[in-house]
């Protein structure tokens, strides 16, 4: 196994960790972190697989730079939404099970309506 392939394999492991976390972790902040780990894994794969005979290829590096910009923008948007949700409900959780997710959403929405009702009184 060459040095570059090790990078790609580590990248693949990180990618799988990130995807697993993104799907399974309930806390939204952890999901955002998992997304970043997934992204880093992919970037390692891009750079690692792009190298041949230990000569680095500039094109995947340019791609990774673009990818980092996109990931930063996505993380910022995600954090803004999580903050807004925390402000509205006091929680930053999502629920793994879909049925209970719908129920939680309904509960949160009724909570918010009640709050608005109290405020207007």
């Amino acid at each position: 196994m060459t040095g570059t392939l090790i990078y790609a394999c580590v990248g693949a492991v990180l990618f799988v960790c990130g995807v697993t976390g993104l799907i399974l972790l309930p806390h939204l902040l952890r999901k955002v972190l998992a997304f970043n780990i997934m992204g880093s894994g992919i970037f390692l794969m891009l750079v690692g697989l792009g190298q041949h005979d230990n000569i680095s290829d500039p094109i995947p590096q340019a791609m990774v730079l673009t990818g980092i910009v996109v990931a930063v923008a996505a993380t910022a948007l995600a954090l803004a939404f999580v903050r807004r949700l925390f402000y509205l409900t006091g929680k930053a959780q999502s629920v793994a099970n879909l049925k209970s997710l719908d129920q939680t959403e309904e509960k949160l929405i009724t909570m918010e309506r009640n709050k608005e009702g109290d405020a207007s009184k």
Partner: peptide, 23 residues
């Protein structure tokens, strides 16, 4: 938030495919 996480997962998985093709 749910849509964002799904769309990020989708494009991340897609980009992993791009890495393999470029490799």
């Amino acid at each position: 938030i749910r849509y964002l996480l799904v769309t990020l997962l989708g494009s991340g998985v897609y980009l992993a495919g791009v890495a393999l093709i470029y490799g």
